[in-house]
């Protein structure tokens, strides 16, 4: 018998929440298995899967060689063959070695086969910067993947979503990329009491406010919440919208919030050019242009490969200070609320 799942009222880290999500999924369905680099004996590069090999065995916690294309493709094949694979790609940076499989196969097979096949595959990837790992280990490419029809892109930013998005992703008949921001693994929090499931369709208002909407996801959500706290001290009430799912985007939630606050700041750890923030901006302009009191402003990562030195990396990334400054710009350009 597996150990009972921990009491949901106790504090847990984001890492623990993801691990419990994996354990629950493995317990619930014998077709579920986890495969990737160092998920077994090593316990996961971010210690997410620690202990799972001992609990579930090597068939279901499957260490792979450093062959991203083969094991992601094998995940696609296993999904086609009736299993429910969770493929861990250690970081989004390495997913580029599997891009052929993700883009040319996972995303296309349903449509290209006239609906005969579907790929119920979940790929988990650590994403983002903030730990002085330099350019090749600091990409935020989730917005880039959100460009691709056929994929679903999830960005759990809270303990609740870290704990329950995986089950929803596994229930989905389509390929899902689940981006866990590497900076969040140590974040501590509490599960919402009584919560047993989350949906993948809705953005969530994490803080209500009337003066401006901060639209964010992942680590940027927490920077936005910190900025909102700071702004509140000067009487500015920012609403903070967590996108949660980057594809398909919850356009209704974005537009509804912006219509209420009449101002929008988008916070995106991706680069500005051709980014998810550009997509969100465009949707706002297309559908709520006449509701805006000020131009939309974006806070993105500087257009450089993310540098190693801490002061340079800090300067490159969105920060609460930059978000606060952006909000003040928006308010000034529209007259204070």
């Amino acid at each position: 018998m597996p150990d009972p799942l921990p009491d949901s009222r106790s504090a847990m880290s984001y890492r623990d929440a993801v691990r419990e999500a994996l354990r629950s999924a493995l317990i619930a369905d014998p077709r579920v298995f986890l495969m990737g680099e160092d998920v077994g004996r090593y316990g996961g590069s971010y210690a997410v899967s620690k202990g799972l090999l001992e609990e579930f065995g090597a068939d279901r916690i499957r260490d792979t060689p450093l062959s991203e294309s083969a094991f992601v493709g094998a995940g696609i094949g296993a999904a086609l063959g009736g299993l429910k694979p969770i493929v861990e790609v250690m970081t989004v940076n390495f997913s580029l070695l599997a891009l052929d499989q993700i883009m040319n196969n996972a995303a296309t097979l349903s449509h290209m086969s006239g609906g005969q096949f579907n790929v119920p595959l979940v790929i988990r990837l650590a994403t983002g910067a903030g730990r002085q790992l330099a350019a090749q280990h600091s990409h935020s490419l989730e917005g880039w993947y959100a460009h691709i029809p056929g994929l679903r892109i999830l960005t759990p930013a809270t303990i609740d979503d870290a704990r329950f998005m995986l089950a929803a992703a596994l229930a989905c008949p389509d390929p899902v990329l689940l981006f866990e921001h590497q900076y969040l693994y140590n974040m501590e929090g509490h599960l919402t009491a009584g919560l047993e499931a989350v949906n993948l369709h809705n953005a969530a208002i994490r803080r209500a406010g009337r003066d401006v909407t901060l639209i964010a996801y992942g680590w940027s959500l927490h920077k936005s919440l910190a900025a909102a706290e700071e702004l509140a001290r000067t009487g500015i009430e920012a609403e903070v919208l967590d996108l949660r799912t980057l594809r398909p985007l919850d356009e209704q939630a974005i537009i509804a919030s912006v219509r209420r606050t009449r101002r929008a700041v988008i916070v995106d750890e991706g680069w500005r050019s051709g980014s998810l923030s550009a997509e969100v901006t465009t949707r706002i302009v297309e559908q709520a242009f006449y509701d805006l009191d000020a131009p939309v402003v974006r806070v993105c990562t500087a257009e450089v490969p993310v540098p190693y030195a801490k002061h340079l990396e800090d300067a490159a990334l969105p920060s609460p200070d930059r978000i606060v400054a952006a909000v003040r710009t928006v308010l000034e350009s529209s007259g204070s609320p």
Partner: peptide, 28 residues
């Protein structure tokens, strides 16, 4: 493609079908 005949497709990326075959066999 033909699901009823377990024909998992012509793949037009050279070698792109091999990892899928590995996964199908893993499921089997």
């Amino acid at each position: 493609f033909d699901a009823s005949r377990r024909f998992y497709g012509g793949n037009a990326i050279v070698a792109g079908g091999l990892p899928i075959a590995v996964g199908l066999a893993l499921a089997q």
